[in-house]
Design a protein around this nucleic acid. Structure first.
Lengths: 354, 354
DNA sequence: TTGTACGCGTTATCAA
DNA sequence: TTGATAACGCGTACAA
């Protein structure tokens, strides 16, 4: 390890204080006014090439970076994007956060994270407080907060642009990024049917999340398309958590005739099905195929690894950031729909042993 | 769902714009000066009870929240805490982030997430740029960035307080929060020994992380204490990732005489051992006990669930936030050490079947 | 105990 | 194409 400062003494060098350069410093060094520096930094037009070059050189020399607070105070653009979430469903949020973070860095924005309880009676106050304090340039709303009227109204009233990730319904003037959950769930189900399964269990997601309903409908649509009757007893209620998946799986396992395949509405619950199968000594995929949804990390740390449907979470949030930075509110209803992809791994196989 | 705004039309009501109240508004309503409002809001002394009450009432009425940017500009306190990380080792970072987020909310701070590549040749510039732009009140440094001299020096030069999580070595003037990794690894190993295991494999962590070395030493110390010779071939190199854990596990499985237990330096790698065991049809815990470290989510979504050592990640980061908000830099070398806890679940058992 | 006036580092308005 | 100067909203010497 490279310990340039005195590792032997265990003391950090008393480095000389170094105050970050300000816009005035740059202006002085470049021999222009601060307004001109501002123009260059913000890529405004009407600056001669020579001036621009001089300013950029000064910026480089002084390692100048505009102070975020000063910018936020002086203008509408705060260079801050907020990621608002409720349920820390780890893998899901992690994926979104990663994408947002990367895109923010590319664009020179900062990401701040805020958590809110969507069931809170003071939700309206909480979101208002958030906005008053931190004046983000825009917010990314994850489910189920993206469907909470009080949140949307607060954002509207504050004229804060926002992008909703995987919302329940589209609303004019409220941009969204989502995938076609209905279609994706159909694809997964059809794949299982194609494998030869007829008795396919389904574990529903949290009823507060819009995607849950879309996925259930997709599952049913695929069944119908294949001429397989929908059996209510094959449908168990889950809540997107591993624990709820365990309970749902046990319900399904307790059926007189067990399904030959189970499609869980997300990977955490699918992992729970896998764990339950092991607990009951049911072999996967020989005796039971399992499919998940989202393609989060958990699907890669199980054995067999999960067949699932990849939802491009980080692309979705990256796109959300880009929309926000383009003043998305003005361009009418932007409804970006990203593609999904069936990811076949080892947890699925034809029924009746391989 | 409660759709107070017109769900039928799919359009958000054009709510009247509502500008957040400013300090002047509060002062006017309360009939005092802005300085007095400031005093009350910042909990400064020397305000009469009557005045304080009046101000608080006005604050409440107007839903006043101080503007973060104005505060950051006007004073040293920016009310922003930065969480700096390198490796998005999902569970680990998620745990830290959650704790930091909660404590920030309690204390009225905001959490910024920043990611940096600790191997980048321009690391020094990157951290400097970050600090110049976002002027956090303090930063939380996770491994391995907490041991990067250029990062520490940049922070020092900018007079930005920071707390290091689980650093390699203690440095005067640089507060830390950690657990006793050496002791914790001893505890896990001793537990396995107590179960009757003598041939205990070990999967090392990323050599760039200080905790890796401490855990290896703890493992060896426990062996020595029990009079069991250290066998180099039972020690495989991992890098904290699931994938690296798979490879390390396969190395260990390929040994002529397989270990009866494997202790992996983190949960991701332990989960990989579990997966590898299943792949090779080795039953856990009957034929192989597996123990992890950290107690992250992954240990609860496997079957059998992981025996592991709980590292109180969210408490650690929460404590870090508190230290930062208390102007930790002045109080000399604060080295907080939090307790760990052995978490016994189903992945460990006496050797030779149960 | 309370209030006045200035500065923080930008962006923005307008005139040059 | 440029530049002087006024906001932006708050904290803080310093005065009252």
């Amino acid at each position: 390890l490279d310990n340039t400062h005195k590792a032997h003494s265990g003391r950090i060098e008393a480095a000389p204080e170094k105050k970050p350069a300000r816009i005035d410093d740059v202006a002085r060094l470049a021999g222009v006014s601060i307004k001109t520096v501002s123009r260059v930094v913000n890529q405004e037009p009407n600056v001669s090439d020579a001036t621009r070059a001089a300013v950029l050189a000064a910026v480089e020399t002084l390692s100048y970076r505009p102070n975020m607070f000063a910018r936020g105070l002086a203008s509408e653009r705060s260079y801050v994007i907020g990621l608002l979430y409720d349920n820390p469903c780890a893998g899901y949020i992690a994926g979104l956060q990663q994408g947002a973070l990367n895109r923010c860095r590319e664009l020179g924005y900062h990401l701040f994270i805020e958590q809110l309880d969507s069931d809170s009676p003071v939700l309206a106050d909480a979101i208002q407080a958030l906005l008053s304090e931190s004046r983000p340039h825009g917010m990314i709303l994850t489910p189920p907060l993206c469907d909470a009227p009080v949140v949307l109204n607060a954002l509207e009233r504050n004229r804060t642009p926002f992008v909703r990730i995987a919302p329940e319904k589209f609303l004019a003037g409220a941009p969204t990024v989502s995938i076609d959950d209905h279609r994706a769930a159909m694809d997964v189900t059809s794949y299982l049917i194609g494998l030869g399964h007829r008795r396919i269990g389904f574990i529903k997601g949290h009823p507060g999340h819009a995607a849950s309903h879309a996925r259930l409908k997709g599952y049913r649509a695929a069944l119908t398309q294949a001429g397989i009757p929908f059996m209510p007893e094959l449908c168990a209620q889950g809540y997107f958590s591993f624990q709820s998946g365990m309970e749902a799986a046990e319900t399904l396992f307790a059926l007189e005739e067990r399904p030959t395949a189970i499609f869980a509405s997300n990977d955490d619950m699918a992992a729970a099905v896998l764990a339950t199968a092991q607990k009951f000594r049911v072999r996967t995929p020989q005796e039971l195929s399992v499919a998940g949804f989202d393609d989060t990390l958990v699907g890669r740390v199980t054995w067999p690894r999960l067949t699932t449907c990849r939802q491009p979470l980080s692309e979705m949030s990256a796109e959300a950031v880009s929309m926000l930075t383009r003043c998305a509110m003005d361009d009418g209803p932007a409804e970006h729909r990203l593609g999904h992809e069936l990811v076949v791994r080892e947890s699925t196989a034809p029924p009746g042993g391989g």
